[in-house]
Amino acid sequence: MPNLLEFSDAGRRDRALTPTLETPAPSPPAPLPQGERGGTLAPILLFQHVSKWYGPVIGINQVTLELRPGITGLVGHNGSGKSTLLRLAAGQMKPDIGSVKISGCDAWTAEAKRHIGYCPELDTFYEEMSGRRFVQTMARLCGYPRAEALRRTEETLTLVGMNDRAERRLAGYSKGMRQRIKLAQALLHDPELLLLDEPLSGIDPIGRRESIELFRELARRGKCLLISSHELEELEKLTDHVAIMAAGRIAAVGTLTQIRDLLDDHPLSIRIASDQNRVLAALLLDLDDVVGVDRSDGYLLVRAKNPRRFFQRFGELVLDRMIEIQHLETLDESTHDVLGYLLGGKAR
């Protein structure tokens, strides 16, 4: 079991999620300024000390989480509890302990479900129905009268680019087309909270770009999106704000940079090129936070702990010594790398 990174940043930043808080925070990140997410708003999704068992197996363990408008990626290994968390948030299951609230209502109530759009991972449904009929039925289940249900069906089908193919039977749909139909049924009622389980899986590159654009636009409009995905590169294009799950718990939550900063056991690797590589290497080795420096192919490969402090000192250093920096690149700050460090082994 890797070390779980647990800290609380609730109330300190606008896009805050509050992860499990059982041990004192080892090194909480500095408060971030209020931003576009509107930190003073009440959370749309709120998990409070939630646990869920499947018989003797624990699916979710003491999870506390707050989600406000914006996009959050949900990542973790298979069996880490991502789907359970999404199902609990979607009101598909009740927690054994704790509570899950959507805009102040219990997640499994009809009132809460009016605020949720859920796009599950499964892609086998009523194969003999047409895409249009399926979405229309889902609109009726939302409680819309017939005329309004029809209008919303057409609009969401247009939105996801399926209007011209919606009369075909679902059995004849490709995986990408099924994803679009699932997305359409999730968007029907203009929900505040969108729970998307692998929404980009199977979609062609153009469709992906459109979907990513759509998700961003929804986030700009104040929607809260929780996206579970194994496609880490695609997820990075969407957001740098992630919740990492391991063994049924939230291992870490926040921006990738924040999480990376807390990984003291794994020094950040930085590739630097300057006009005085040899001098710079000597100076860097004198810094407390630098663990090692290698030279290769005209670059310095620096491994540094506490990246925030390192970059502050590094900036001061190059300005004092008038060193011209020609290239600066962090090598292992991607979701993939962070997830790998945090969970141990390979991230995917």
């Binding site: 003999e128 129905m129 409680g143 309004e148 247009t158 203009d190 459109e210 759509l214």
Partner: peptide
């Protein structure tokens, strides 16, 4: 992408019991 411009729903939602018929209709279909 042109985002859907939802017309805010001014009407009253049907009760959840109305959902019984669409479910039955799908099954019958």
């Amino acid at each position: 992408m042109q985002l859907l411009h939802y017309r805010s729903w001014q009407g009253t939602f049907h009760s959840s019991w109305w959902a019984v018929w669409p479910i039955a209709r799908v099954a019958l279909g």
